[in-house]
Write a protein that binds this DNA or RNA. Structure first.
Lengths: 123, 123
DNA sequence: TTATCATTTGTATATTAGTGCAAATAAACA
DNA sequence: TGTTTATTTGCACTAATATACAAATGATAA
């Protein structure tokens, strides 16, 4: 499929848009931080991240036990997409932003084990 | 579904992106002109137009036997989407633009019957 | 080496979307 | 009125996506 359609197709999902917006507001995030922020199961976030990566919208880098994800800023079309997405105003984004702030602030005491357990119970 | 996701979702299809680009380059088009330009079956174009309309990206207006479609320019998010799409460079768009030029030039002698027959035979 | 933690993946199932034909509308015209 | 033309729609079929669980992988630490 054409590269640009692949990118556009991947935008048609709220979780993926939320992930892209998170990554647009900080340099990078661990998978578990995204899980924590969006309150969705690990495997769900993982699959969405893979789709975003297949569309070359994001990239990853392993850091020991953790994996960092960050925006791929090497393509001008990507930047235009991010501009479009960050222009959207929505309640759920505000909530995400709030939670992200806390998660990043507590990065030192990061403990993915607890939060992912949390998630399972809450669902 | 949230309005903005509905719009983004609808962009994940090449035919719909091609339709939006056509409509961005002229004031309006008859359905049969889009069929003629994109060389796709009538029913396929019709269905895609309906999806674009459901997402409030385009509007229609009947003119006698024909129906005109045109961009909905009343939402700023729509304009941003159109800007994004028109920034894409692609061979197939060039071909569309060429054909559209001819179709619009021959608008006076418009004859949808012939061209849609054409389509069926070519497929 | 075993245990633990972060993340991904295989498989199964459910849901949604795309494709194509033929029939249905809606307007115009003979 | 019946016919033709432009467009939409119902239905059947196939293909793509989403969702969930459990098991697998890859890294670290005990």
């Amino acid at each position: 499929m054409k590269e640009y359609i692949k990118k556009l197709k991947v935008l048609g999902d709220e979780t993926r848009v939320r992930i892209l917006r998170l990554l647009a507001s900080v340099d990078w995030l661990y998978v578990c931080e995204i899980v924590e922020t969006l309150e969705l199961p690990f495997y769900s976030i993982s699959r969405h991240l893979k789709e975003l990566e297949n569309a070359n919208l994001i990239e990853q880098k392993r850091e020991g036990k953790f994996i960092r994800y960050f925006l791929n800023k090497n393509e001008s079309f990507n930047s235009k997409i991010i501009d479009l997405l960050t222009s959207i105003k929505s309640n759920s984004f505000d909530v995400d932003d709030e939670r992200l702030k806390k998660v990043v602030a507590n990065r030192d005491s990061l403990n993915c084990k607890l939060s992912s357990k949390d998630k399972k119970e809450r669902v």
